[in-house]
Amino acid sequence: MMIISTTTIIAGAVVVLLAVLGSLINPFLRSLRFQKTETAENQPPVSILITAHDNLAELERNLPMFLRQQYAADYQVIVVCQSTDGETQDFLKRTAENPHLYYTYIPESSRYMSRKKLQITLGVKAAKHEWIILTEPNCRPSNDKWLQTMVRQCQDPNHLVLGYVALDEETKSVRRFDSIRKAYYVLRRAQQTYGYRSHMPNVAFRKSDFMKEQGYQGNLEYVRGEYDFLVNKYAHYGETATELDCDAWLIREAPSNKSWHNAHLYLQASRKSLERAGSMRTLMFFDHLMPHLSLIATLAVAAYSILMKNWILTGCAGFSFLLLFIVRMLIANKAIRHFDDGIAMFKLPFFEYGIIWRNLATKLRYWRADKNDFTSHKL
Rank of each mutant, 00 (worst) to 15 (best):
R176S: 05
I336R: 00
G278M: 03
H338P: 00
Y353G: 05
L250K: 10
R140G: 04
T121D: 14
F285K: 11
T39G: 03
T95I: 11
F229Y: 10
K116P: 00
T6F: 15
A204Y: 03
I296Q: 05
Q70L: 03
F374G: 02
D340R: 03
M2N: 10
N55K: 13
C81M: 06
E275F: 04
D245P: 00
I180V: 10
L63I: 02
A183T: 04
E226V: 08
A11P: 00
A235P: 01
S259Q: 11
N359K: 12
T8F: 08
Y164T: 02
G86K: 09
F319V: 15
N62R: 04
S173V: 07
C316F: 14
Y184R: 11
T51W: 02
N359E: 15
H53D: 10
K145W: 09
W311H: 10
P137R: 04
Y103E: 04
R368E: 07
A254T: 10
H199D: 15
K347S: 05
T314C: 14
S198A: 13
G238H: 09
S198H: 05
L63N: 03
M280R: 11
D156Y: 10
N55H: 14
F285D: 02
I326C: 02
I78H: 08
H264D: 12
L92N: 03
L59W: 06
R281E: 15
Q43I: 08
I106A: 00
L348C: 03
I306Q: 13
R111C: 13
L364N: 06
E97N: 11
S23I: 08
A72M: 09
R197T: 06
A269F: 05
I133E: 03
D340G: 08
S83Q: 15
A335N: 01
D90S: 12
I3K: 11
A19S: 14
F229S: 07
A19F: 10
A302I: 02
N138D: 15
L265P: 09
S5H: 09
Q153C: 07
K117I: 06
Y234T: 02
E170N: 13
S173C: 10
T39Y: 01
T8P: 01
N219Q: 11
I120G: 04
R30G: 02
H236G: 03
S259M: 09
E38N: 11
Y222G: 04
D90A: 15
Y102K: 12
Q155C: 13
